[in-house]
Amino acid sequence: MTQPRQMDPGALLQVDDLSVRFRSDAGVVSALNGVSFAVRSGETVALVGESGSGKSVTSLAIMRLTPSPPGCQVGGHVWLRGTDGVPLDLLALPSEAMRKVRGDRIAMIFQEPMTSLNPVLTIGEQIAEAIAVHRGTARASAWDAAGDLLELVGIPEPRARLATYPHHLSGGMRQRVMIAIALSCDPALLIADEPTTALDVTVQAQILDLLRRLQKRTGMAVIFITHNLGVVAEIADRVMVMYAGRIVEQAAMRTLFQAPRMPYTVKLMHSVPRLQIGGERVVLEAIPGSVPDPTNLPPGCAFAPRCSHAAEGRCDAVSPALEEVGAGHFVRCVRWREIADGVGR
């Protein structure tokens, strides 16, 4: 089995040059174009970007839940440190071995709590199923464990809830159940794909709070996907900004908020709904233009058509490389230095 060129010793997950292409009626959709990043044990990494930038595809590719080829081609490597410390290339794993990774070493929660639970199975059955699949636990003890999990995720009267069906629960409660399922086998990594997007604001805050607490308690790493930078500030250690299937900026959370270098990140921050400023709701400005057509990406910087700093002949010539602009701070912009120096305006 191939070994990683180098897997950062502290890394739990390392994604190398991940690319995903869909073949559709409209043409080839380049959803991911060489995505590389690493996640260390116990850290929370936020993956942000507008809708359509490839966040969900990244998570599905890691889980190998993308459609099968040739409709969808996945390239690159996804290294996961096994329980024995040896890196596994998830994309090269036999499917049965990969199935055992899913829900056990890596768990996932989704954006749509209303439709993500099976309507004809009780909540208890759906949690216990995850435990039984990976632990082979007897029904009764899996059921007990499911009750404990519901208590852990803060569902009132957890044991009584086990026998109820998903439709009895609100969206927020269902998302808690999804979290309970995800946590059932003590995953080393949790991928949360916009877990709060479909929920209303107060519930969003509760779920975020819950995730933060659980993460502290279990020490799992979290990839937190969102299009909302406001949420990022509350939860992330590090942030990766994604645009048109590429990571365009990556930094520690504070660094990113204090000194964003990529014009896209800056725009994204201006579009954050800073909810309460002096009691007033701030109307956010949207980023002008729209994400590029993934079947026909512009040459050079994919953000160029929308970028107020775009320079003809430079930005649209070659695809900018990811440059280290500070400790652990990477940017994919040819003009970042000029812009930072105030020359770019």
């Binding site: 199935r99 990774v101 899913r102 993500s116 639970l117 309507p119 995850a130």
Partner: peptide, 26 residues
């Protein structure tokens, strides 16, 4: 194509079980 089938897959449920317990039942 339902989301809950994707959830079952993300839980690591074997395909056979997904078919009989989740898909056919619904």
């Amino acid at each position: 194509n339902q989301d809950y089938i994707r959830t079952a897959r993300a839980k690591g449920v074997p395909e056979q079980t997904i078919l009989f317990r989740h898909t056919i039942r619904n």
